[in-house]
Nucleic acid binder design. Sequence first.
DNA 1: TGTAGTTGTCATATA
DNA 2: TATATATGACAACTA
Length: 737
Amino acid sequence: MLSLKKYLTEGLLQFTILLSLIGVRVDVDTYLTSQLPPLREIILGPSSAYTQTQFHNLRNTLDGYGIHPKSIDLDNYFTARRLLSQVRALDRFQVPTTEVNAWLVHRDPEGSVSGSQPSSGLTLESSSGLQDVTGPDNGVRESETEQGFSEELEDLGAVAPPVSGDLTKEDIDLIDILWRQDIDLGAGREIFDYSHRQKEQDVDKELRDGGEQEDTWPSESAEALAPNLLVDGETGESFPAQFPADVSSITEAVPSESEPPALPNNLLSPLLTGTESPFDLEQQWQDLMSIMEMQAMEVNTSTSEIMYNAPSGDPLSTNYSLAPNTPINQNVSLHQASLGGCSQDFSLFSPEVESLPVASTLLPLTPSNSTSLNSTFGSTNLAGLFFPPQLNGTANDTAGPELPDPLGGLLDEAMLDEISLMDLAIEEGFNAGQASQLEEEFDSDSGLSLDSSHSPSSLSSLEGSTSSSSSSSSASSSAASSFSEEGAVGYSSDSETLDLEEAEGAVGYQPEYSKFCRMSYQDPSQLSCLPYLEHVGHNHTYNMAPSALDSANLPPTSTLKKGSKEKQADFLDKQMSRDEHRARAMKIPFTNDKIINLPVEEFNELLSKYQLSEAQLSLIRDIRRRGKNKMAAQNCRKRKLDTILNLERDVEDLQRDKARLLREKVEFLRSLRQMKQKVQSLYQEVFGRLRDENGRPYSPSQYALQYTGDGSVLLIPRTLADQQARRQERKPKDRRK
DNA sequence: TGTAGTTGTCATATA
DNA sequence: TATATATGACAACTA
């Protein structure tokens, strides 16, 4: 038996290692917080809230269920009070944290392992040690919670890689072996559970022998500890069941009821079978593997959430014992653990109690109601507040399956969103890379030439230059000054003829753009240094003054020959624009640069200085108009490009926001589903315990529980409950109107 | 030769 | 009304 326990313990431990390596985090702290007291009680003993014998309050009555002064059923009474308190605690909407703790396990030397074997492991020290472990974790969880969901998602996987990086070959082999072990683990979960219970019974026995326990640590708590450990259908981990503890108390309190006296284990067994019978272990592993694949795709938690939030009735999700109760993500925080102590730790590895198929376990308690309980969940009763009547009929079939509810549509919608979320996640990653590529490269084949750095204007935009100044009114003085320094587009400033005073008032353009344009005529070979400008063969110098072109393009005169001068003249002719040719032909006495860029006043003054014919004046005005329009066209194209780029960025941002909101929505829906399951189980349990004056259970078809605003639970006739439900249904409709 | 991208130009609208 | 600017559309040019 010891070897078997050791084997299984190691299996659990190794499975946890495996989970941590694949990035699955299992939150232990969740189950140790005040939200779920039973586990802490099981470990540390019952809290005062549940064990205090409030004799001064014995006459308090739970609505519809009082304590008869002559036959005080304290156990039943306090159980009912606890249930009521849990029902009242449900109004606090609670988003489950996705905190997961994993353990970086090292194998202790054999001696130490044997020394910390389960048989001698669970002592009071171990429980205190648990607190020590969970203490700092809580702090971590709180800080992570503050960071927010999206940030948490963005940080996924930050811790896990080093673990695998430290793996030795032995570790890998071990993981491989364990992986196969774990695949077979499901078949032996009953054994698992039994071993755990056996272990706990050993512990209990040891505690009794040691006599170190106080009286307030009753043996029944240890007994409750043992039978209430359930096995997680997915991980094989043992976890305490919340309700079976009550079940045992019920059987003790009401032995003469329809339920025959049964050992706690016997009570647990149907629960276990109820939990596991629907499970196809192979299917579970496929699910797990699919999660791993999703995570490998860097779809982060969203995909795993998708897996867990299958639509109602989806056997995958409904049978997924991990699903709503074991939020996982890739946040892996590693804790040190030893083989010896892991068995105790695993007992804490419990999903939330809502996952338990309470309904199915409770049915045997009220066999007389079993046929009519389905109708209990009418639209007006407590469950009716959460479940539609037409769907509640399936509530008792199995506790595991998803409860159809009014939110089914939302869930279905969520599933659709999740599908798109997955696409988004993939798409998001792609866009991120694309965006970075856009920033890094200046090449694009898009028809819109989004980052067409072939165009000098886009180059200027990518350099982060003053696009606004260029796109805005070009007549600004700053733009003009920059223009005076860098020269205009295509209308190179003739430094020999154009003084700065005249140029100051000229219409400016982007300096960077002008810089490259000047490069193009000063030294065309420099274009080869800019591959994105290589194939730009357009003439940007058609307005350039011939003198400037000469100085810029002509090789040293010493090397010139007479023949080459003609070639240079032809080259210069080709470099000149049509307007320059015309201006030359018309003998316009000033440069096109001046014609285009001078302010109107100065331009008029310039015209007044010369006696020009009508043809000349017309040509000058055309040159000025075309030149300005040319720059305007360039500005316009650049603005268009900037607009497209900004829109692209906005789309990416919106996609990111949408994905984040979808993830949050999935989280909320998951939490809502958990609460609904809890409400349903509590309702059934409370209703099943109610007895009339003759000690007979109430018929769900005739009575229903109603959850009033002041927190009390009333047992009312079903007809009345139906009426009230109809009123509640009308209210939202009226509001819509 | 066809195609895509760039640029210049025209026509038009607007400030 | 004149001027400047913006923009769609088209053509020319180049790779």
